[in-house]
Design a protein around this nucleic acid. Sequence first.
DNA 1: AGGAAGTAATTAACATGTTAAATGGTTCGG
DNA 2: CCGAACCATTTAACATGTTAATTACTTCCT
Lengths: 174, 174
Amino acid sequence: MTPKTPSKAGHSSSDSHRVPMREFSRSLPMALLRAREAVMRQFRPSLRQHGLTEQQWRILRALAAVDAIEVTELAHVAFLLGPSLSRILRDLEARHLIERKVAKTDLRRAVVSISAKGLKLIELVAPTSEAIYAAITRRYGARKLAELQDMLRALEDGLAGLGAPEEGGAEPDE
Amino acid sequence: MTPKTPSKAGHSSSDSHRVPMREFSRSLPMALLRAREAVMRQFRPSLRQHGLTEQQWRILRALAAVDAIEVTELAHVAFLLGPSLSRILRDLEARHLIERKVAKTDLRRAVVSISAKGLKLIELVAPTSEAIYAAITRRYGARKLAELQDMLRALEDGLAGLGAPEEGGAEPDE
DNA sequence: AGGAAGTAATTAACATGTTAAATGGTTCGG
DNA sequence: CCGAACCATTTAACATGTTAATTACTTCCT
């Protein structure tokens, strides 16, 4: 039925050119990407049904947990770069899901908060989202999931200062 | 150092609005995203120095491992969606890093292969890339790294058929 | 005070992610 | 042999990732 038979178009592992490199499917970035995609694939349809992208949902959730927050701090919390955040906030504000005002003490800073409409949307989406998360947890095992998260955090922390030049410390040579 | 002192702007955990939701920083998608970003942050500067994006590098590496490959299969291997791959192949071909020709047996299919120039570029970048990977492995521990990869693959496999409707097979109930 | 340097946010420009639609080619049933 | 259904690839349209440049405001130094 499915003519999905590979093993054609030439040969299996024809290394006519061969550079000494990792097998690629075994690379850590690829493994992380694939795992994350497998997870997000579960959530995207539900979010899309409510007109939200993954990043917009991240922002709303972050806002729902606080009274108000400055843009820079929001970028940090939601793990988004400034330019992305800027565009998304413009859009969410136009949809009246958030509110924005300038800080009184520093006119450069903007303070963002979620609106009543935004809260209503969250309350609408949250149950499905939590159900999906619960299903994933059941499938993978709560214990194992916690362990995975620990290992991911350890990886992140371990790499925190590898190629990143320490500010305040002179770089030996160059 | 880091004036990352929260606990201002009102209060610490001001739950003026509170929706029953996971703490967010503890969400699996976020953990995977952060970990992957920490890893990629190590590679990007080197790739950028050679005028390559992460995805372009993925494609060149995949091509270096085979003689030739069809576009659909390449998309699968490099974990890219069709439209992205289409654009990138156009660009790489214009830079003469790859070559493309139509399949003789099926005029719809295109067959792609790496060029001599592309191979030279890979040989130029690979040493640095491998050195970075080695540094990460040392930092995190080879054993632990292998374990992490196993857990990531298990997660991916476990989620393979959760929300995806099985074609031809009825979904029992859970 | 006043200009140099620094900072917060946005804008610009290009590359990719994501879904839908279009294009060109193939296969199959009648 | 012809059209319907199907398939591989590309194009379209919009949202985000990523780095550099701008803009507006603030601080600091003399």
